[in-house]
Design a protein around this nucleic acid. Sequence first.
DNA 1: CAGCATCCGCTTTGATACTG
DNA 2: CAGTATCAAAGCGGATGCTG
Lengths: 216, 216
Amino acid sequence: MRSYEQYCGLAKALDVVGDRWTLLIIRELELRGPSRYTDIRNGLPGIATNLLADRLRELERAGVLTREEAPPPIATTLFELTPRGRQLRPALEELTLWGLPLMAEQAPEDAVRSHWLASLLEVMLTDRQPDASRLTLELHIGDEPIVIEAGDGTIRSRIGTAEDPAVTMIGQARPIMGFLLGRIELAEATAAGVEIRGDPATLDRIRGDATVTAAP
Amino acid sequence: MRSYEQYCGLAKALDVVGDRWTLLIIRELELRGPSRYTDIRNGLPGIATNLLADRLRELERAGVLTREEAPPPIATTLFELTPRGRQLRPALEELTLWGLPLMAEQAPEDAVRSHWLASLLEVMLTDRQPDASRLTLELHIGDEPIVIEAGDGTIRSRIGTAEDPAVTMIGQARPIMGFLLGRIELAEATAAGVEIRGDPATLDRIRGDATVTAAP
DNA sequence: CAGCATCCGCTTTGATACTG
DNA sequence: CAGTATCAAAGCGGATGCTG
């Protein structure tokens, strides 16, 4: 990217991370940890492969990430954020929070990746009954199944399946997220094709309460 | 900007504010309040005027700012952030903070605007002697003189001059900011051509202590 | 297959000139 | 003052090919 040539912190930051795709690349590394080129690309549907190679080189030069040849059992290149790169997390979180209301509308073409949703739910949901026994929720939304576990007052999310989840939800991202974040009611979600196994009432323990307002 | 088409908060935010120049336009409105087209352009040296017009239109459509015809005494169009636009402030602050270390090197071509520096100093400096009498500092760096006032434990900055400042500093942005943020010592600043009137020792009350580390 | 590099058509940006 | 109009240059997206 061409520099803004302004003696200003924001302009200097954008000189490094203001290019198209750049912050999304950093989001991938932040969410997934050290990753292979192919896996990063999979989290960035639509990016041109040469552009990804370019950006990774630039970010390496800027000290935001490192490239490392992993030893034989893995035998591939791993890209990983440096401490300096990880310091972008608060900025990423604030931007994500600002973008949340815009997720009320999901365009039909929008790609969905499970790890995007998993991290979002981990931040947005809270366990309001910390003394109750562990609650397990399995979601089938994007490319991989997600497990949400509530217990001891915290919410954990991971990619994978659970042994005996209290509730399983299968369907489109928008109604499922809308229901879990408390923006719509159960009836509306099922009307949108969401399939539910187990007792959805047990989810009241962790469901959001629509503090996320609608987009303008 | 072409949409990323990803069902993810960060991607949705960047669909709106991820374009080149966009966040800097919002910074101008955030720092200056309701502004005229010409004044915004003055805070964005290098932007093409048609591009500014485009961005303002898009941001208005996205509900980030409004355009208003001011009544006769002013008789011009004023651009102003909406509440939704002002909610970007935490994200702007985090990005600015991340960019701060990059200000250690100032390219000779870098443009300097007083209101950028004023707001930065207001955030970065602290009054460590809240019970002492008011301290006034006048800076001549960018396009306009700046006044920094410390008192009652707070730091205020404004564009303009002071009646009888305790200290006046005249010179280049990098050494003056480096000295005030505690990154370099007085001798280094004067060696870089900074002219000082008054007793610089009184500034120890508000000077930073180099918590801002160097860029990688 | 993983990790790129090259080529090409299209879109966005930058610089400048001009206007109600 | 607040923009439009024009056009060259740079950046991007998509397809494809190359190398270990």
